[in-house]
Design a protein around this nucleic acid. Structure first.
Lengths: 108, 108
DNA sequence: CGTGTAAGGAATTCTGACACG
DNA sequence: CGTGTAAGGAATTCTGACACG
């Protein structure tokens, strides 16, 4: 269901291209990093590299900002969503374990 | 089946990153373009931009080159594959049209 | 708080060319 | 043919800072 280290999450896009793709200024993109909203990787010499997922996230951020939402709020929302997701993961992991032991038996 | 203008085919990767990803020198990458094996887009100021699909193609090219295959041969193979693919497309298009007229009827 | 901008420097990319083989 | 390299210039990116509000 979720291709993992795939095209979407591979960090390969430079800030200039991200700027074109999102319509945000490089200044804005760097600032959102400072506010811990995006986490680009760095190349050898320190150039930022983003993924398509980052680009989409930045577009979401841009929309929120247009609605007047502050970066701090956006960060809080992201952290909340993060925790919720982890909770879900834990539940699913647990369900998997239970199934493995007491669930539908395989042959033999 | 084939996500179209998606992450895989969007031209957003600069030549430096492509070089890292493929292990090829920038010189080699530019040369393969000269030999019409890859077709990057250009940014405003003329910088080359590649897609993940291009990166994969370049890796294939690198492998062929290691086997001693010349760029000209590689190009011929690509053109042949291209033609074959188009032929297939035409067949499928035709089948689709026939089905639309004489195939399984919808309601009414 | 969020963003623009000028500043200075380092790294990137581009093209056309010479070199070797 | 395929690739390295030095050359010169233009564009990119980086950081830290001042500005406005």
């Amino acid at each position: 269901m979720s291709e993992n280290s795939s095209y979407k999450t591979r960090k390969v896009i430079t800030i200039g291209v991200v700027s074109e793709l999102t319509g945000l200024s490089e200044r804005q993109i760097r600032y959102y990093e400072e506010r811990k909203l995006v986490f680009p990787e760095r190349s050898e010499k320190g150039n930022r590299k983003y993924s398509f997922a980052d680009v989409e996230l930045l577009i979401d951020i841009a929309n929120k900002r247009e609605e007047g939402v502050q970066t701090y709020e956006i960060r809080q929302d992201m952290l909340r969503a993060e925790r919720k997701k982890e909770k879900k993961m834990r539940r699913e992991l647990l369900r998997g374990e239970i199934n493995a032991r007491f669930g539908i038996q395989k042959e033999r």
